[in-house]
């Protein structure tokens, strides 16, 4: 069992873990998180993790990108923990999560002499703020 911590960007059920590459949010199929929402532009905004810091930038959206109610522009803005982020009127969550990866070996194989058959299970648990503290 492998447990690791990561930071993810989530809009409703759609999410993406932040690594080194840019996470783009928009309606375009080219977006990393593609959400078909009328207030989102085709490429609306993007997150990028640089070391321990997370930056957000607006990609020329029509309805704007807001951090704690303030509209930001094309220059990357660092995101403080707990900041409220809104794309148009869509709320975006930046969460620290615990990812548990379990590799389990099946014991009820139909043919015991056949090749071993592993299954992977990944569980993601959002770490509550109290736990972080």
């Amino acid at each position: 069992m492998l447990v690791s911590r990561a930071i993810r960007v989530r809009i409703d059920a759609a999410w993406q873990v932040l690594s080194g590459t840019e996470v783009v949010i928009g309606r375009s199929p080219y977006s990393t998180i593609c959400v078909n929402h009328p207030k989102l532009s085709r490429i609306h905004a993007s997150f990028q993790r640089v070391g321990d810091r997370i930056f957000l930038r607006d990609l020329g959206s029509t309805n704007g990108t807001f951090v704690d109610g303030i509209r930001i522009g094309a220059d990357p803005v660092p995101i403080a923990p707990g900041a409220t982020i809104r794309l148009g009127d869509l709320q975006v969550f930046v969460e620290e999560v615990e990812i548990t990866n379990t590799a389990r070996r099946r014991t009820n194989r139909p043919d015991p002499s056949g090749p071993l058959d592993d299954t992977d299970t990944t569980q993601i648990q959002v770490i509550p703020d109290e736990a972080k503290r």
């Binding site: 590459t21 080219y30 977006s31 990393t32 490429i43």
Partner: peptide
């Protein structure tokens, strides 16, 4: 295609 535009610039 489809590819993630976030990986395009690198």
């Amino acid at each position: 295609r489809p590819f993630d535009i976030g990986t395009f610039l690198p």
